[in-house]
């Protein structure tokens, strides 16, 4: 994209207008991040007269990188993010395509679909806790009634089941969000393109891959970006459902930071975990935005 003089003038005006907002963001975002980075470079002792800092460089990072639990929770969080986001994108795409048809009761369907998304995660997690409960849980009761299982299953107590169970609860809750973004994208696609494709005799599958999908790529990228960033902040779901167990198999990186900071009072290593997460997330965001930008450019040209 070449930038001409007029564009530059617009850019300056634009920056002038967003400056107040950026200042607020700097205050509420950059200051805490900066302060956390500062904390992560210090040994911190809590005393009767406040915190005492002594600079120790990257020692806190050396501590956390040397601990298996850190890598394990990073691995869990990454795997969890990838699996849930991919499934949510596929399911979200299917529901968005269905809801984009001029069907009867579409407004009602969209409203109903949004219910899981509007529930506070802690509440929906409690609800899933009742569903998965090994003693009086609904899921076991249904499966036992249908003779699919002979014994109640411990959904949240075995690692091979606890992780997928958490994923199901997450996908149930956030697929509507992906659907909404994709639906908005679908509605922006001009109907003339579909009409042209139909006149050319393209099949429905072909229309999807040749018309819908390319034009929807920015929306898909945006939904994926939002979800990846959220998934890396995973906290409330495992906090309510498993407390990170069994063992530490569902301990997300945010839970690890919480435990170090607020259970153990280890402010140095705890902030080092938090800062590592922020760095990782910013990198992911930049990469995703970069990918998004080229796509937008392609579409415009």
């Amino acid at each position: 994209m070449r930038v001409n003089k007029l564009d530059r003038g617009y850019a300056i005006a634009g920056y002038a207008m967003v400056t107040p907002a950026l200042l607020v963001i700097a205050l509420v975002t950059l200051f805490p991040i900066g302060y956390s980075i500062y904390m992560s470079l210090n040994a911190i002792q809590s005393t009767y007269s406040g915190f005492q800092f002594s600079f120790i460089g990257l020692h806190n990072y050396a501590i956390i990188f040397g601990i298996a639990e850190f890598w394990q929770s990073l691995g869990f969080t990454t795997g969890y993010a990838i699996v849930t986001v991919v499934i949510e994108l596929i399911l979200g795409m299917l529901t968005a395509l269905a809801l984009n048809q001029p069907i009867k009761g579409r407004g009602f369907a969209v409203a109903a679909m949004l219910i899981p998304w509007t529930l506070i995660t802690v509440i929906s997690a409690q609800m899933w806790g009742y569903i998965f409960n090994p003693v009086y849980g609904v899921l076991n009761a249904i499966l036992l009634q249908l003779h699919i299982i002979g014994q109640p299953i411990l959904w949240l107590g075995l690692p091979n089941l606890a992780i997928p169970s958490l994923m199901v609860a997450d996908i149930w809750k956030t697929t509507p969000f992906v659907t909404m973004i994709l639906l908005a994208g679908l509605q922006l696609i001009p109907t003339e393109l579909y009409e042209a494709a139909r006149i050319d005799g393209a099949s429905a599958v072909r229309v999807f891959f040749q018309v819908t999908f390319p034009l929807l790529r920015p929306s898909i990228g945006l939904a994926a970006l939002f979800r990846i960033l959220q998934a890396f902040g995973l906290f409330d779901l495992p906090f309510v459902l498993t407390q990170g167990g069994p063992g530490t198999s569902t301990e997300s990186i945010a839970m690890l930071a919480y435990k170090a900071l607020f259970n153990d009072g280890e402010f140095g290593p705890g902030t080092a975990v938090a800062v590592s997460t922020v760095v990782l997330v910013i990198l992911l965001a930049l990469v995703s935005l970069r990918a998004l930008r080229t796509q937008v450019g392609e579409v415009e040209s």
């Binding site: 991040i33 956390s36 919480y258 965001a285």
Partner: peptide
């Protein structure tokens, strides 16, 4: 485009609140 950039910022802010909590709420010595 700018909207999504801001949105991305907002998400990062949300995550950063985890680290923000760790800052002492009062720096004045009690």
């Amino acid at each position: 485009m700018k909207q999504s950039l801001l949105a991305a910022f907002a998400v990062v802010t949300g995550l950063a609140s985890l680290t923000a909590c760790s800052s002492p709420s009062s720096t004045t010595a009690p």
